[in-house]
Amino acid sequence: MQRQGSGGSAAVVVRVAGFVLLLAHLLLVAWFSLRPRDVAWVTAPNTIPLHGLRTVLALGGAEAARLIGEGLLLLAPLGVLLPMADGRLHVSGWASLTRTTAASALVSLAVELLQTAVPGQVVDVDSVLLNTAGVALAHLLVVPAGRTRLRRRWEAGRSSSSAGSTPDGGSPQGATPTISRVPIAP
């Protein structure tokens, strides 16, 4: 399967690095999220969207900021690593954001569902919302600018490697003439 805009060995290095970093991050998330906790009691699962966030915001101050920040940052690197592992340079920004956000929502949901089997861990739908929002925010902040920079480098490399071109991008012989189509006589 050929990728759009595969730019040679540099693109392969970026894809492999993205894939390796993605696996390392997912292993770190699994270690952090799926460890059993030694607690005397466990709160009830939160299955009502935004209910837990209201409770956290009621705490106020630094504790609320810490809890919301943890939720936003846990899976945020996926916003950069998933497009990096995909390796496409020429893709719609909205399509990339949608694909990345949907994939991260599924990863977050899987982590929350796996937590049901871990002692001391409870399901919280607000964690899925915060994790997904963090991924979307990271994607919006990093990926469009990074893709633009990589596209410019790739295009600059292509134009400098083309032999016999003029500064305006044309060939030294001038423009290629076009031939009008002549219909076949009856």
Rank of each mutant, 00 (worst) to 15 (best):
M1V: 09
M1G: 14
M1N: 08
Q2M: 13
R3A: 15
R3C: 12
S6Y: 10
S9Y: 09
S9D: 09
A10R: 05
V12E: 09
V13T: 08
R15I: 13
V16G: 06
L21R: 01
L22Q: 04
A24Y: 06
A24V: 13
H25Y: 11
L26V: 05
L28S: 15
L28N: 13
L28E: 14
V29T: 04
W31C: 07
S33M: 10
S33F: 01
S33Q: 12
P36N: 07
W41R: 11
W41M: 13
A44R: 05
A44I: 00
P45T: 02
L50V: 14
H51W: 13
H51E: 15
H51Q: 14
L53S: 07
R54E: 14
T55A: 15
T55W: 09
T55Y: 13
T55F: 13
V56R: 01
A58S: 11
A58Y: 00
L59V: 01
L59A: 12
G61I: 00
A62C: 06
E63I: 00
E63H: 02
E63G: 01
E63D: 13
A64T: 01
A65K: 02
A65G: 07
R66D: 12
I68Q: 04
I68N: 03
G69R: 03
G69E: 07
G71P: 02
G71I: 00
L73C: 14
L74C: 11
L75Q: 04
L75H: 05
A76E: 04
P77G: 10
P77M: 07
G79W: 00
G79E: 11
V80R: 02
L82R: 03
P83N: 09
P83I: 06
D86W: 09
R88Y: 09
L89A: 09
V91N: 01
A95F: 03
T98F: 04
T98Q: 02
R99C: 11
R99V: 05
T101K: 03
A102Y: 00
A102L: 15
L106Q: 01
S108L: 07
L109S: 12
A110M: 08
V111W: 07
E112M: 03
L114D: 11
L114I: 00
T116C: 12
A117F: 08
A117G: 10
A117K: 02
V118T: 06
P119Y: 08
P119R: 10
G120P: 07
Q121V: 05
V122C: 09
V122S: 15
D124E: 13
D126Q: 03
V128E: 05
V128W: 01
L130N: 06
G134T: 03
G134V: 02
A136W: 03
H139V: 08
L140N: 05
L140H: 06
L141W: 06
V142G: 10
V142H: 02
A145W: 11
R149S: 15
R149G: 15
R152H: 12
W154V: 10
G157P: 04
R158P: 02
S159N: 07
S162L: 15
S165E: 14
D168L: 13
G170Y: 06
Q173W: 14
P177E: 11
P177Q: 05
I179D: 14
I179A: 15
I179L: 15
P183N: 05
I184M: 11
A185S: 10
A185I: 00
P186V: 02
